[in-house]
Simulated scan of single mutants.
Amino acid sequence: MSEAPHEAPIKTPGQLIAAVIAAFAIPIVVIILLAYYVNQSIRTGAGTEGLADSTVAQRIAPIAKVDVHDANAPHVFKTGEEVFKAVCTTCHTPGAAGAPKFGNNADWAPRIAQGYDTLVQTALHGKGAMPPRGGTSPDDYSDFEIARAVVYMADHSGANFPEPAAPASGAAATQTAASAASPASEQSASASSGASDQAAAAAAIAALPSAPAPTSSSADNAQAGKALYTQVCQACHAAGVMGAPKFGNKADWAPRLKDPMNVIYNYALHGKGNMPPKGGSQASDDDVKAAVDYMVSAAK
């Protein structure tokens, strides 16, 4: 059987010309289409965002900025809620250092019973572990704004105090620091067991009295130590804030008691870590040592 002869696919000159054109045109069209597709995507190289207009403007902006305020412009007072969120929430939301919790009617009931004026004066002058004005100054918040914060907290915790009357024009500018500078006269009887945040400890230390604590001339060493602990030390040691060993907690005190008493006295007198010298008080060295003895004896 003989095989059929093979025939060429291109039989005419027209077919040959068409084949030659297709051989050149088809690859060119494919290449053009691929190039168009690639150019549609966003290509960024390393560091190219550094040349963006916003980035360049931020980089060449001057370091110092001056905000000019019109001294004659009317003062815009903060609302009670704004003051609460900026200042009071640190302690009053978790109930740190014995502060009445926001929205807890049981915590606020005895305070509300004292009346609006007493609550405002307590907020302005401080009490227990709470520093005057919550640790702010009259330049930060006026008496009116502090009163607004008191009403906001009390009214959300069972009270029905009316909104304080706004001061006369310019009255806020004439407030003096003396109206809120008297030191706290008492320390909180108890502290919240969950108060371990640094903000609560800072507030507690800021509230420590500047006057000397009672000396042992009118009582023996144990009584003087207990008095100083109640007045100053318990602000941090009752709750164990900022790593302070809790009063009566043997596990907290065990590593400290490995040191000689002279070393422990030295820490209390001159400070260590977050604890200021003498706990931030002006007590005598003997009374500080007596307070150390009182806390150590409770941890043995």
Score class of each variant (00 low, 15 high):
8 A>I: 10
18 A>L: 07
20 V>C: 11
21 I>Y: 00
22 A>P: 07
26 I>H: 07
28 I>W: 15
30 V>L: 14
32 I>V: 11
38 V>A: 13
42 I>E: 07
47 G>W: 01
51 L>W: 14
56 V>L: 10
57 A>R: 10
58 Q>G: 12
58 Q>R: 08
60 I>E: 03
64 A>D: 06
64 A>G: 05
64 A>V: 13
66 V>P: 01
67 D>T: 10
68 V>F: 07
71 A>E: 13
72 N>W: 03
73 A>C: 03
75 H>E: 15
90 T>Q: 13
91 C>W: 05
91 C>E: 04
91 C>G: 00
98 G>P: 05
100 P>N: 01
106 A>T: 11
108 W>T: 03
116 Y>N: 01
120 V>E: 02
123 A>N: 04
127 K>F: 05
131 P>I: 08
132 P>N: 03
142 S>M: 01
147 A>T: 04
148 R>S: 07
155 D>M: 01
157 S>N: 01
163 E>M: 10
163 E>F: 00
166 A>T: 14
175 Q>H: 00
176 T>E: 14
179 S>Y: 10
182 S>E: 15
184 A>K: 09
186 E>S: 10
187 Q>R: 12
187 Q>T: 14
190 S>F: 08
194 G>C: 10
195 A>H: 11
196 S>C: 00
204 A>K: 11
210 S>C: 07
212 P>F: 11
213 A>C: 05
215 T>F: 01
219 A>G: 12
225 G>H: 08
235 A>D: 01
254 A>D: 04
255 P>W: 09
260 P>K: 14
260 P>L: 09
264 I>W: 09
268 A>E: 02
269 L>N: 01
270 H>I: 04
274 N>W: 08
275 M>V: 00
277 P>T: 00
278 K>E: 09
288 V>R: 10
290 A>L: 11
292 V>D: 03
